[in-house]
Design a binder for these strands. Sequence first.
DNA 1: AAGAGGCCCTGATAGC
DNA 2: TGCTATCAGGGCCTCT
Length: 287
Amino acid sequence: MPELPEVEIVRQSLNQKIKQKSIKKVIIRNRNLRFKITEKFENYLTSKKIIKVDRFSKYLIIHFENGFICIIHLGMSGTIHILDQNNPVNFTNTSFYNSPSLPKKHNHVEFIFDTFKLIYNDPRRFGFFEIMKNESELKKRFKNLGPEPFNKRFNLNYVINYFKHKNKDIKSFLIDQKFVSGIGNIYASEILFAGKINPFKKARLLNLRECKQIITNSKKILQRAIIKGGSSIRDFKDVLGTQGNYQKEFKVYRQDGKRCKRSKCTGFIKKKIASNRSTFFCIICQK
DNA sequence: AAGAGGCCCTGATAGC
DNA sequence: TGCTATCAGGGCCTCT
């Protein structure tokens, strides 16, 4: 669910709140997330000071003073909330950032700080927490992930070579973290629309223009989404927290049935399944 | 190696 | 009203 831009927004707000703070206590209410949280988890983090919160791809990376690293993945439905004694603020919720109050169910993990606590909520439990003991363990953990769109390694050479003998449709590569990491189902459709590329075109058949478009639009769209605070998909009755705004700029995602937003295009947006995920595209300008 | 498909899980919504 | 089926922003695993 949260893709790179949403995780980056969480990172920024979380970092501001917990950097240079020590965890007083860790409470695990349910260890059975995507991967089971080990029995040692609490011991590893209790009374440890946080240096900063980083991010790679869709992973939050919390660095501790003793060199330990906690990585958090939000899966499809994971959200992080900060409950402050004086000033209750939510950093994420089921629509990303705008929950007026903490969900009642599925609060699986808590980090208790001096005057506030961090709460991890995740109904589907596809998210996870893992501990790395040092940087080299972290590196190993991410070794199968491709470059982020912003990385220099994500260039024309890389893309053309990668696609050479690939017989799968381009959409499935955009959401394949081994090819490029950070893009998910929403932004994949948006990126392909921006490049006028048919999502079902086989990767090996993409021409030079299309490969270039994928590179530039991946950067552009993710960057723009970060600036807009990410995408908040669902509308909630009561909006007190910060809400993302990029969903207002969706050109194709969940726009099926609507007219194509390109000024001179007469097409409409269609929804089709590609590698088991909904894909949205214009039937005319993404031929 | 690459591709197809299934699975993990809960909740919201659509259709009857 | 209540039932059932389908779908959801992800990623890992197995089989061919």
